[in-house]
Design a protein around this nucleic acid. Structure first.
Length: 825
RNA sequence: GCGGGUGUGGCGGAACUGGUAGACGCGCUAGACUUAGGAUCUGGUGAGCUCUGCUCGUGGAGGUUCAAGUCCUCUCACCCGCACCA
């Protein structure tokens, strides 16, 4: 073979061999410890992979290979989140069935992944739009249904007028659809929900048990939004019933000078005084019509209308006017609040605008202020609060007020969450049909599990319509069916499931992807899961990553799995921007594909560069020239190994100077094993690569300049270890060189090298000499040099001595192995 | 507005518990080899200066310390998330 580094020849050869050997097949039984490395379930887009996607896959792959060499049985699978709107929208635009485009895109992804040597066990590939997969997505829906966790409800829901479908709360960003960016509106429809709110507390608590980025855990914490407070019942003037509010500050009850109901609150109609009716109706109408962006804005001035009705404050029987305003949300708490303008910024704004009294009931440490110019939300002491005056608030007072009112049945402690139930129905074609049949007699009836899957009919016309019905509703002979319970006439549920349902359980499926009797084999799931390493972008912080945790807990409660968290360790890769620092996008024409890089430099250089480019979690701009650097590195490695392999004889006898260089090479080698091993475990791939570069620079220097420093056998040992260390990063060149070195087996199955702590230890260290903290000299001293000896050498050091001359040393600082600092006057 | 993060050469970035700032790579530059080179190899490369050496230097201003990129206080810029959640 030509001696020049030719990545294409090497890569083609080894990819063929790996395919023939089925090299990445993972056995389900092994006496090795297991390691499950998983990438986020990708949607196979028509654009294919960019070098940005590789930033996700290459590091996970390198860790998989590293763990495999360390003796783990590694599960590293890949599959496709293939249902969903993009496929369907593209299909509508191009007039091709989404199944066709999806399969085409999958083939392209698969090709690219092989091209960069991702070590996936393709025998475990799963595709969420295939019936043998979505059958089990439907099974999960039924599991939730059986457990009372799936229900239908009518409500005002987010509607995307462009995608023509309902969206979940978290799919609406700043009043716009998360996919297409259209302004969303609300539409009243009957929808399916999953009761994720039942799990709010556990989803919160268990965040403490998993190794995830703090930022993601914080985002989930905020999204779940636990808040501790109390429900308080206000009497209603002229009525028997009460109005309940949720408050986190029951200690401010004496300052409640008005109340506010959400415009949609069911009591508004009944409470409104006749003379206020017109104004109230007009306000309700306006609130309903308002675009969500307007309503969401915190900048806009408060608005509202007085209903003419009064409530009674339970702490002092004071009459309290009841208003309606859109700053109170129907979906949180009870849809009604007590307003304490003195101690809440929003209430303060509102009260100022409508000239409602502001009563100070919490005095800051500096004393009561009398007239407030802004809301005081801090701690303090209760004032104007009758028997509670002088009590510390909120701390002590919170409890005291709730207890006092509680005795009379007017208040109780309450925890609220911001988290809402997960709306999963979609009025679109390309998704898993919800396995429910609606019977005239029996109502909603689940399709029996043994009749799954409910097949998605093969439609030619799958255009959505704006009537809020799924395209499936038009398929008469599919819709009409019989009731599984009474055999009477019935019709199928025509909504499909949110694709996040598909990705909420796929990590289970890889354990037994071909099981035809269950979504997963329990023993295999107990062996493989939880996922040991899960890698993907931070953009899924509150959607996929919350839903998957929820599904896992439901499966745990149902006794299907023994654990409650699917992903033990999560890492988010940084994004790769285009060279100009902009986001890579097809429309900007600045996308760099792995294909173009591989063509120029080969897959190994691309892989090493993906690892080297920046710290793993950090976003960074792509640089084609940067790949040149890792390409050169691999080229020099190739040349070095070839020279070592071809070298003859035992070399020249070494002098002492050479012998020392030889010892240093072995020392650096052992240090590098240590560093690369630790860096691979801690996701510091960039410094692992640079450590290898440093090692190679030193090895090359000594090899070319002082070959006699080591015996030929030792040189071979050095390059052998180097080959093992680069193997997870650059598997092709490592494999080729491994064979050249005469090691028969695949380098993938070679053991990971182990360092020798003694060989890695320094004999001599550089000690810096400072005078008044400024660097003046350096000394080479033995590591175990005595303090007095080092100080004497330091005083005598030529340059340091110049600064010490004629000065009085008032202090000597000695840090062993590091520095000497003379403080002089 | 609230919460979180990041600021180090021309660029991407190193720097363990405070202890040699700028490892490694890109780029630039001088040279070697070459018909040629956007290939390869060797040297140089934070800024300034009175250049065997000195001074300054990690967004900015203070502080603690023998010693600060690292710790403390204040401040600026950019990025991300949430957005009237009572």
């Amino acid at each position: 073979m030509d001696r020049r580094y030719d990545p294409h020849a090497i890569e083609e050869k080894w990819q063929r061999i790996w395919k023939e050997r089925d090299a990445y097949r993972t056995p389900d039984e092994s006496d090795k410890p297991k390691f499950y490395a998983l990438d986020f379930f990708p949607y196979p887009s028509g654009d294919g992979l960019s070098v940005g996607h590789c930033r996700n896959y290459v590091p996970t792959d390198a860790v998989s290979r590293f763990k495999r060499m360390q003796g783990y049985n590694v599960l590293h699978p890949m599959g496709w989140d293939a249902f969903g709107l993009p496929a369907e929208n593209y299909a509508i635009k191009m007039g091709v069935h989404p199944r066709v485009t999806t399969e085409r895109n999958i083939a392209n992804y698969h090709r690219q992944m092989d091209m960069i040597a991702l070590s996936f066990d393709w025998s475990r590939e799963v595709t969420s739009c295939f019936p043998d997969y979505y059958r089990w997505t439907q099974w999960f829906f039924l599991l939730l249904y059986e457990r009372g966790l799936a229900y239908q409800a009518t409500g005002q829901q987010w509607w995307c007028p462009s995608c023509l479908t309902i969206l979940a709360n978290e799919q609406v960003e700043q009043g716009k659809c998360w996919r297409c960016g259209s302004d969303v509106t609300k539409k009243g429809l009957e929808q399916w929900y999953l009761r994720i709110t039942d799990y709010a507390q556990r989803l919160l608590d268990d965040l403490g048990t998993i190794d995830w980025p703090e930022q993601i855990k914080l985002m989930q914490t905020n999204w779940i939004g636990r808040s501790e407070g109390a429900e308080v019942d206000f009497g209603l003037q002229g009525r028997e019933d009460t109005l309940t509010v949720f408050t986190t500050r029951p200690d401010t009850l004496f300052g409640a000078t008005y109340m506010v109901l959400a415009p949609e609150h069911p009591l508004v109609d009944e409470l409104t005084a006749p003379e206020k009716r017109d104004a109230v109706l007009a306000y309700q109408d306006q609130a309903r019509r308002q675009s969500e962006i307007e309503r969401l804005s915190t900048e806009k001035e408060k608005t509202g209308v007085f209903t003419g009705a009064y409530a009674v404050n339970p702490v002092n029987d004071a009459p309290v006017p009841i208003w309606i305003s859109d700053y109170v949300l129907m979906g949180y708490g009870t849809g009604a609040i007590m307003a304490v303008p003195a101690h809440d910024e929003r209430d303060f704004q509102f009260a100022t605008l409508f000239e409602i009294p502001i009563v100070e009931v919490i005095a800051p440490k500096s004393g009561a202020q009398g007239t407030l110019t802004e809301a005081y939300t801090g701690d303090g002491v209760m004032v104007n609060s009758g028997r509670f005056d002088g009590m510390a608030a909120p701390g002590e007072a919170f409890e005291a007020v709730v207890e006092w009112l509680g005795e009379r049945g007017a208040a109780r402690k309450k925890v609220n969450f911001k988290l809402r139930d997960w709306l999963i129905s979609r009025q679109r074609y390309w998704g898993a049909p919800i396995p429910i049949v609606h019977c005239e007699k029996c109502g909603a009836v689940p399709v029996p599990k043994d009749q799954l899957p409910v097949l998605l009919p093969d439609l030619e016309d799958f255009h959505p319509t704006d009537d809020g019905r799924s395209p499936l509703a038009r398929v008469e002979d599919w819709v009409h069916t019989t009731c599984p319970s009474c055999d009477g006439p019935a019709h199928r549920e025509t909504d499909t499931m949110d694709t996040f349902a598909c990705s909420s359980w796929y990590h289970f499926r890889y354990a037994s992807p071909h099981d035809e009797t269950a979504p997963f084999d329990r023993d295999r799931v107990e062996y493989w899961l939880p996922v040991d390493l899960y890698v993907g972008g931070a953009e899924h912080a509150v959607m996929h990553l919350l839903y998957a945790r929820f599904f896992c807990k439901v499966a745990q409660d149902a006794g299907y799995v023994s654990f409650g968290e699917p992903y033990a360790r999560l890492r988010n890769q940084g994004m790769i921007q285009a060279e100009d620092g902009q986001k890579m996008s097809k429309s900007k024409g600045n996308v760099v594909t792995p294909d173009s890089v591989v063509e120029k430099y080969g897959a190994d250089a691309l892989r090493v560069y993906e690892l080297f480019i920046a710290p793993f979690e950090q976003s960074v701009a792509w640089s084609d020239r940067g790949v040149q650097g890792t390409y050169r590195f691999l080229g020099r490695f190739w040349n070095l190994v070839n020279e070592v392999v071809e070298a003859q004889g035992s070399g020249v006898a070494a002098g002492e100077a050479e012998a020392e260089k030889g010892r240093n090479v072995l020392r650096t080698l052992n240090k590098t094993i240590r560093k690369v091993t630790r860096d691979m475990d801690t996701f510091r791939f960039n410094t692992a690569v640079s450590a290898l570069m440093e090692l190679q620079n030193e090895v090359l220097d000594v090899w070319t300049g002082a070959r006699g420093a080591l015996t030929l056998a030792q040189w071979r040992e050095v390059v052998t270890v180097m080959t093992q260390l680069v193997a997870p990063m650059a598997p092709h060149v490592a494999s080729e060189v491994w064979v050249l070195l005469g090691h028969g087996e695949n380098v993938l199955d070679a053991p990971w090298p182990v360092w020798d702590e003694e060989l890695a230890a320094d004999e001599v260290v550089t000690v810096v000499v400072q005078v008044n903290g400024k660097l003046r000299d350096r000394l080479e001293v033995p590591v175990d040099a005595e303090k007095d000896d080092v100080l004497a050498m330091a005083r005598a050091a030529e340059n340091a001595a110049r600064f010490l001359e004629g000065k009085q040393v008032v202090k000597e600082v000695f840090v062993p192995g590091k520095l000497v600092n003379f403080v002089i006057r």
